[in-house]
């Protein structure tokens, strides 16, 4: 389910992130395809975010789940944005239930791809585990189209670019 509003939010991301290239012409449209696990319980919160080659927080690509009292369970992400002194920028949507799929499109600067940046996924479900770094993968063209798996409530994240 590709949402057109998501694209405009992606464009906003470029404006707010210091690490992006100056011109949109040098940005690439990237699609994040999320497949959730089958589990019993309420919808999952998750954060997909980037760290730079030094391991410092760079930016949030997508945040699923809008209530901040539950967002703190995304502990790696929460810690990362705290240390960056940042608050959540507007790139968020509803929490995602068991077995559901989500597709998000956004523009990412060419300068970030194949440049040592890492994609992190934290997931959390009420009364289940808080999974930090449930999925970790390099932001490289090599993983394009390859499902990345991990140990949280997200079965796979596929990055198309």
């Amino acid at each position: 389910m590709l949402s057109p509003t998501v694209k405009t939010l992606g464009a906003a991301l470029i404006g707010t992130t210091a690490l992006v290239a100056p011109a949109l012409a040098q940005a690439r449209e990237v699609t994040l395809n999320v497949q959730m696990e089958q589990y019993r319980g309420p919808a999952a919160y998750f954060a997909i975010y980037l760290t730079d080659p030094a391991g410092n927080y760079a930016s949030t690509l997508w945040l699923a789940g809008t209530k901040s009292k539950y967002q703190r369970h995304l502990r790696g992400w929460a810690r990362a944005i705290s240390s960056a002194g940042g608050r959540v920028d507007g790139i968020s949507g509803a929490s995602v239930g068991s077995g559901r799929q989500l597709s998000v499109s956004l523009n990412i600067s060419d300068a970030l791809i194949d440049a040592g940046y890492t994609i992190h996924v934290d997931t959390a479900v009420e009364d289940h585990r808080d999974a930090r770094d449930a999925i970790v993968a390099p932001l490289s063209s090599a993983i394009a189209g390859q499902p990345q798996t991990g140990n949280g409530h997200m079965r796979a994240l596929t990055v198309n670019m």
């Binding site: 209530k67 901040s68 009292k69 703190r72 929460a78 810690r79 705290s82 240390s83």
Partner: peptide, 10 residues
């Protein structure tokens, strides 16, 4: 009151 964000310590 649950919206208050407790920042991770520096």
């Amino acid at each position: 009151g649950s919206d208050t964000w407790l920042a991770f310590p520096d």
